[in-house]
Design a protein around this nucleic acid. Structure first.
Lengths: 335, 335
DNA sequence: CTGAAAGCGCTAACAA
DNA sequence: TTGTTAGCGCTTTCAG
């Protein structure tokens, strides 16, 4: 490995001078600087980040912890968003997937500490509540898609309610008055919030909530599209069937489309459909392309890192901010 | 930050002793060890990885570079596979996505060097050839899903030919004699290899290659499922239509299924379908669930790190090994 | 504008 | 079995 010392020798200057040009210190004669620069180039020298950290205390490292973003590709953009934001600020991202194993998680956090990361972003695949205690107090931590039980950590979560409202209103604005909602039976922020949004949208259009129009799929969720097929079919076979359907997520739309086609109805002429998530390989590829509410994963990842770096507000009135991210509508052809 | 020195003071021993227990050196009295251990615990001390590296020269870091795994979720398992293998060996993974920008790539590699990564794995989203020259000679590099122009770097790529053969044989073994193949018109290893596999399978069953049964979709590939719909429909409307269809990838199956249903044919009774990639959210969720050839991304990522760590052969007969990964058949219900 | 030297937190040769 | 100390590659205080 080439060291700063060797560079100094080759350039015929002191170590201090090389260090100065490395750090763009203005107190270097132009000639000297160029001389050093050319030696650096020639030797293909790169200063050691570890040694530099030893002095400055700045590791330029950010830890990115995920619970099980693994199995599910949806949250991938989150990582890339975070990586990009980190890169733009000269930081590097450590990736660690814990598979939801508390022991791995504890070890992972320690490992991050060993490398003196400047902060940790912890992202979960499902919007949920987590225990605050698992994170060291002295390490800036940012939660994504989850929030601390005591709200003691800043977090970024999608605005499920507004998203659900937006999806429903999209249908309502097109004139649909019987709007079905197919969701999952889980007491989690996503299904709960989107349902609340659905109700609010209905209310704002003075349409009474009709529980016959909403279906909750029970666990397990393996064959989710298939269960959705059944639910949508039963919705369509009602005496007074819905003409618009809001699916809890894009995956379920696969089943919804099948059910609609099964009944020889057309999309969107006879039945309009709105999804949620905007998983490109589904939403953009089904026929007709799906109008859906986007879970802005990339932006969430980006914002997380920006907050960690202090580029965005993380505290308001002495309390860690709980950021609600707007989920925008992606209009395609299903409404 | 707590240092080893403080631990030593609290424990009433020397720094060297603390270092010894940290490194499981046997030459420490049991009592001393326990004493030190308890102080470490009490102070919640963690040795600095940077300082440790300074002495040992072992960074325990691995760089993971991707071209644009970003936009496309398929290759995500690759990262997780690599991360897991790294973790199992006490290594941490740096993630850097270059978006195929050569300048970003060069800077990224330098950044990895700054942190003295022990090696780099470079993964591409599409199976392709890359230039060898972009990687520093002194840094162990492993290519995934791509290979160096001069084969000078070890690489791991899927065995496209065997995969294509497997997909086709799956149809052939079920008795199908007219097997269609819908692919993309690109001179890349994946479409080329899978086509070759298709031809080999046909040949092994003494069935002549009939170019009327194969369709190549031209760029751009945005509405790939939609183009596939057209191709499959035209295939099905032939005088002597195929009873089995091999789709270049799972995404295209979305269109293939639509076309088959459009013609009121049943899957798999009238027309059997085989995909490629095994993208779970598609393959497991379409109706009927798709039989497909898996692109073993997780395993590829895992193997890459294992090779980098010297746990697997990287050289054979003085030449970097070019690993061909077997793509297994995932049987579901479409054949 | 430039250089000598101290020291970041750790490991390891050497001494005791 | 334990302690003293040098030094990894860099930045930075203090002189020159």
């Amino acid at each position: 490995m080439i060291t700063i010392k060797e560079v100094a020798q080759h350039a015929g200057v002191s170590v201090r001078t090389v260090s100065r040009v490395l750090n763009n210190n203005p107190h270097v004669a132009e000639a000297t600087r160029n001389q050093v620069l050319s030696v650096i180039q020639e030797l293909d020298f790169r200063p050691s980040a570890a040694a530099r950290y030893m002095r400055t205390g700045q590791s330029q490292l950010i830890g990115f912890l995920t619970d099980e973003l693994a199995q599910n590709a949806f949250g991938y953009d989150l990582i890339i968003g975070a990586q990009q934001a980190a890169w733009e600020h000269g930081k590097l991202l450590f990736l660690l997937n814990t598979n939801n194993d508390p022991e791995v998680e504890a070890r992972a956090i320690n490992m991050m500490r060993d490398y003196q990361v400047e902060g940790i972003v912890y992202a979960t695949i499902y919007h949920r509540q987590i225990k605050h205690s698992q994170f060291p107090k002295d390490l800036p931590t940012l939660l994504v898609n989850c929030f601390a039980d005591d709200r003691s950590l800043p977090s970024i979560v999608p605005d499920e309610i507004a998203g659900g409202r937006l999806a429903t209103e999209t249908l309502l604005k097109k004139g649909h008055r019987r709007v079905g909602f197919v969701s999952i039976a889980a007491k989690e922020p996503a299904p709960l919030g989107r349902l609340e949004g659905y109700r609010q949208a209905l209310a704002s259009f003075d349409i009474p909530y009709d529980e016959a129009l909403v279906r909750f799929i029970e666990e397990p969720f393996e064959g989710l599209a298939n269960s959705t097929y059944d639910s949508v079919l039963s919705l369509l076979q009602m005496p007074n069937p819905p003409t618009g359907i809001f699916c809890f997520n894009d995956l379920m739309v696969l089943g919804a489309y099948d059910a609609i086609r099964k009944t020889s109805l057309r999309i969107p002429e006879d039945v309009a459909v709105v999804g949620f998530d905007n998983v490109e390989i589904l939403a953009a590829q089904v026929h007709p392309p799906l109008t859906t509410v986007e879970l802005p994963n990339f932006e969430m990842g980006q914002l997380a890192v920006r907050m960690l770096l202090g580029l965005e507000e993380t505290n308001r009135g002495g309390r860690p901010v709980q950021h609600m991210i707007h989920c925008p509508l992606i209009e395609r052809k299903s409404v």
